[in-house]
Design a protein around this nucleic acid. Structure first.
Lengths: 224, 224, 224, 224
DNA sequence: GATGAATGAGATTTCATTCAT
DNA sequence: AATGAATGAAATCTCATTCAT
């Protein structure tokens, strides 16, 4: 009766349990402060088994980063349908992003905070994921420009900077939202969408960005 | 000619040297990976002297955070003149911010990355500084709204979210700029100013934010 | 032939070896001067293993005190049969006490000297043991008074003081006997028994305490 | 107005201040745990001055022991008049001893506890003092035996043991009295005097030791 | 497949002690 | 006479990692 701590599980399952534990601990303590002892204990296995499967602390951390990076990009990719208009794609992407990060705070901590701090090797793993997202946003901006008028005079470098700023803002907001009580993924997405699309200037003059069919909670993003 | 490594210096001077070294090492290695040995060596003193003056690794780190937070807020405060229009104030603030962070990359790493990761106590030190800046931006938005029209219907909470997003974007951009070759403070400020003030929508329709008297390098800023 | 330094022993055994070594070193050097390095070396293990099992220098010291205190009280308890007359009980107790302390000089040093010096926490551990012994002696005095005459007019507080003095004398004698060549446990017990029971006054007037059936070596305790 | 912390004092005075501070700290913390920093601070001088005058921690500790040992023996010597009867001499000596130790707890801690623990050299310093006292007591016993009857059949070795036990009991009682609230020097002396002179046996049969002219507080020591 | 036993290397921190003034 | 500045050496403790079963 009760939860039986079954032994002898297939390797794939054990590995996932270990990664779950590792993400949890790395997210809470940070890479250096996390101890393999604690991770093994939380995973419910002995330390040597962790080493047998994941090889070293570094490899374990890298495995965490890879798994969570893949999960996040997959979530965003799934949320976006490229046949829709650019602003709608951005909205859907943001919503998927904030939804995922808000559901996996330790994972987001690992990707956003920990991985960047501890060595170039780890940072590079995250950078790959990030570039994929930046590329997606960059392309969105280009498409939107094309949709808006026939003369796309935004130089490439400028577009890159804007995408960077937008992604950076999203990352910061995600961390802030996780740390702040009562902020929903939808609210975060709405705030950022307004900020990015309409700009403060427009917002203040009463002309926020609007998108039909999207039920909203944030104030300035008005449902038409 | 050259720096003479003089011995027996007054305490105040030595303390600054130690803090310089500590910011450098903490910025590079992170709090946990930084060793007191390395810091002492870089400061050109023995480890016991570091402990005598700064007391402990924690206290040393806190002292770094305090000094750099004070320096950054001071730099921004000095750059802004509150009698000017809101957008000009934002521009000046951003310029001062990016100028300071680009000149002190390790200091910015300590404030932006390290301090947030290692314990609530450290994070709180930074949070105080951050709140000061967020408050400044929040007030700018309110003032700008008042300048734009008499009916400021942006609810308080929304304004807070926008300020958060803007500051977050600036922080991210600063880190990115430090890590990317050839990005000037002025460019960063311009990119973010456009992004924040005009919004992507306006930008793409050829209506970027402009400010007279400000010579710029970034492209879309400064229309004709 | 000889002691094979076998590796990989069960935890319980290793812990006892560590405690043996710790008592030895703490007894010789004192708590502060004893180094975990030396203890680990004498125990034939690495320092981390000592920490893994015993947790900290403080905990290790406490474990030593507890073990030795228990051993000593057990030795005394075993030596005394409560159905015998009071003076015989005292004699048996003293003999057991001096026998045990003379066989484990470092243990006695730990209990009598070290534990009292280094912090109230340690002293309290010993105080518990000591109180047990003082209580035993106190009760002996009361019983003896009852046996001697029906009117026990010794006030409680006075009895406590006497018990304290007797136990204190025994403790001192034990330390002195350990430091002095050629003093047997039996001699110490006899000296103290005479001192305590008959008093100097009686002794000097040729009326020492005597106990039938007890072969003695000390002079004044004459076999009647 | 207020205590003026005068500088430039004659060496002899400064040295006494340092010894005062050292006895205080050594008594509280123990030899190892006491830090020269703390001693210098309590003495109101800089550390190098302590080294200039007292040379080293060891020498400082030895100086403390010497001073306090001399003070204690002097106090006992002064309290005893050798022309009086032996038991009166013992009483006076005990009273002087307990009075002195109760007035200088840190000094007594240094002599009784600290000095014995930390190295043979220190212990030897105390041993010299102790031997002087033991010799005094030994002689008292011999004299008393002579007074009591003409046939002193107590062998020398036995007398030595008895003196040792008596002195040991006194030492223990002194420490206990210092640690216990409300125990006066007179009470300690009375308890021990009864214990030593009459013995438990006599006490319990209602025949305590008595001394004319000595006002008492302890119960069994009755003024005839 | 899984683990209890064990360790080498290195972290922070403290302290007695000395130099230069 | 007196001190602020500075350090070498050593202490406790932690951790990633491996061995033997």
């Amino acid at each position: 009766m009760g939860v039986v701590k079954s032994k002898r599980m297939p390797r794939a399952v054990r590995e996932q349990q270990m990664l779950d534990a590792a993400v949890e601990i790395f997210g809470q303590r940070g890479y250096m402060a996390a101890s393999m002892d604690e991770i093994a204990e939380l995973a419910g296995v002995s330390k040597p088994l962790v080493y047998l499967y994941l090889n070293s602390k570094e490899d374990l951390f890298t495995a965490c980063i890879r798994r969570e990076a893949a999960a996040l990009t997959e979530a965003v990719r799934t949320g976006v349908r490229t046949e829709l208009p650019a602003d709608r794609q951005l909205w859907d992407g943001l919503l998927a992003f904030f939804t995922h990060t808000s559901r996996n705070p330790p994972a987001w901590s690992v990707l956003h905070l920990q991985a960047r701090i501890h060595g170039e090797a780890f940072a590079a793993e995250v950078a790959a994921m990030r570039e994929e997202i930046v590329a997606f946003v960059t392309q969105l901006i280009v498409v939107a420009a094309r949709e808006a008028h026939r003369d796309p005079d935004l130089p490439e470098r400028e577009v890159a900077g804007l995408a960077e700023a937008l992604v950076g803002a999203a990352e910061s907001l995600a961390a802030w939202a996780n740390a702040t009580e009562g902020v929903t993924a939808r609210q975060s997405a709405a705030t950022l969408m307004n900020f990015a699309w309409a700009g403060l200037g427009n917002l203040m003059e009463g002309r926020p960005w609007t998108l039909r069919d999207v039920p909203t909670e944030g104030t300035p993003m008005q449902v038409g």
